[in-house]
Design a protein around this nucleic acid. Structure first.
Length: 112
DNA sequence: TAATTGACCCTTT
DNA sequence: CAAAGGGCCAATT
């Protein structure tokens, strides 16, 4: 169904290393679609499971999980992040887990 | 066409 | 730090 945009987003998400996280907004930026954070969430929801994307490494700009705290999604994401050794201070994820990709490497990995 | 809906973001309080 | 309000924008109804 939808387009090259989703593929581009999925690609960027697939590059987030284990033990690190990135926000919807930054993913949008890196995918060349600034201002489209909400599209990233849509793309993740629409992503085929067989892609095995590390969707749990995508959080919001406040460095918290975007699902409602009581939801299954929240629990799943929290569980997976904890498994990767990601530390929380309350609901907030520690700053030092933020993914800061080297742009040159990123561009190379995004090659088409 | 218009209104509504988000796995969002930023600034201000 | 947390909460609120306004902004944003594609997809859906």
């Amino acid at each position: 169904m939808s387009n090259p945009h989703y593929k581009r987003i999925w690609k960027v998400v697939s590059l987030i290393p284990e033990g690190q996280v990135c926000s919807y907004g930054i993913i949008a930026d890196l995918a060349g679609m600034p201002g489209r954070a909400r599209l990233v969430s849509k793309a993740l929801k629409a992503a085929p499971v067989d892609l095995h994307l590390p969707w749990h490494r995508v959080i919001n700009a406040q460095r918290t999980i975007s699902f409602p705290a009581a939801s299954p999604g929240y629990k799943k994401q929290h569980e997976r992040l904890a498994e990767e050794g990601i530390l929380f201070s309350g609901k907030r994820i520690d700053k030092h887990h933020l993914w800061q990709p080297d742009l040159a490497t990123l561009l190379w990995q995004l090659d088409y």
